[in-house]
Amino acid sequence: MAALGEHITAMVRSHAAGDDAAFYSVALQVAAREARSGHHTIAENIKKSVDSSRQVTPRSNITKLAQPRGDLAELVETTHPAVTLREFVAPPSLTGQIKHIIAEQRQRQRLLEHGFAPAHRLLLEGPPGTGKTMTASVLASELALPMFTVRLDSLLSKYMGETAAKLRIVFEAVAQRRGVYLFDEFDSLGGDRSGNDVGEARRILNSFLVFLEGVSPESIVIAATNHRSILDRALFRRFDAVLAYQLPDARQASAVIRARLGSLGTGLSLAKLGDHTNGLSHADLVKAAESAAKGALMRGQSAVRREDLITALTARQQANIG
């Protein structure tokens, strides 16, 4: 019931703000929740209502608060994810951490009333394609919040000399607008540097950490990095939790492939694929499954063959080596 309460709260907020896109996104999340619970009629009615409502001319005099404007619009990308924790394949220890963060956020008012802040400053570290961005999407979806993505590497290169001022704009939004804020490529600030930009990067990092210290627990701020080894160890204590990501093992790889293939994987044996999935990230596995599925569909078949999947997985391995 807690999750449903979060969705209803988000719908009320988006309705009051006139943010139709956010309202419909949350409504579809509720429909998906009902479908998973076996309430297919309710789910279908919600979807039909959303589809019919979208045909109505939108109200032009309403400000869509979830869509950034002005300088902020140039700094962040806004999405309304609809991916749930059930769809996330990861070791139990990692999913346990994510569940705990969600639980603290859902009971943040109770925690705050007793002088405790919910975990809201997170550092995600691990190889590319292992689920860091998906984790941010899961948190946004489970808590019925918009997600704002800031790519620090491009921010640093595009606004060199004024990056700290741009960061201030983003953190002002964090204080004003509840959401999940993902700062991607965090190592572009926190890594070891050489050259003329080292002083600028250090100043920007210090500004980021000052802003992070004062961030509101109403929002979740996430820093994601592919390179933990180059981060200053002192940075880690600035976060409420550090989540570590790894390449999937054979069992997790099979689960990722099975989930992506859906009905096209019916009857497909995924046993003893370890040699073909070794070294591949979650993103690589999804791409390989999609390649095999599209090949089957274009042949007019309704199921993926094992040899097609192996070919796709091998191609991804070779691409990574190249």
Rank of each mutant, 00 (worst) to 15 (best):
R36I: 05
Q176P: 00
T78G: 03
S49T: 14
H100D: 15
R316P: 02
F148Q: 03
D232M: 10
G279N: 11
L243P: 07
G161Y: 06
A82P: 01
N45D: 04
E113L: 09
R238V: 05
F239T: 06
R203M: 10
A255S: 13
A292W: 01
V210N: 12
A3C: 03
L182D: 01
L209D: 06
L268M: 08
F208Y: 06
H100Q: 14
P127N: 08
T266M: 04
I102N: 01
A296R: 04
P118D: 03
Q301D: 13
M147C: 06
A303F: 00
E185D: 15
I310K: 13
R13H: 13
H39I: 03
K99V: 13
P217V: 07
L182K: 01
V215N: 07
V12E: 13
L313Y: 09
L122Y: 01
R54M: 14
G195Q: 03
S188G: 10
Q67M: 12
L28E: 14
R306V: 07
I204G: 00
D192H: 15
L280Y: 06
R306H: 13
H39S: 09
A117P: 00
A271V: 11
M160L: 02
N226C: 08
F88W: 09
L94F: 06
L309Q: 11
P128T: 03
L212Q: 09
E34G: 00
V256G: 02
L264M: 15
M298F: 14
R316M: 14
A66W: 10
P81N: 11
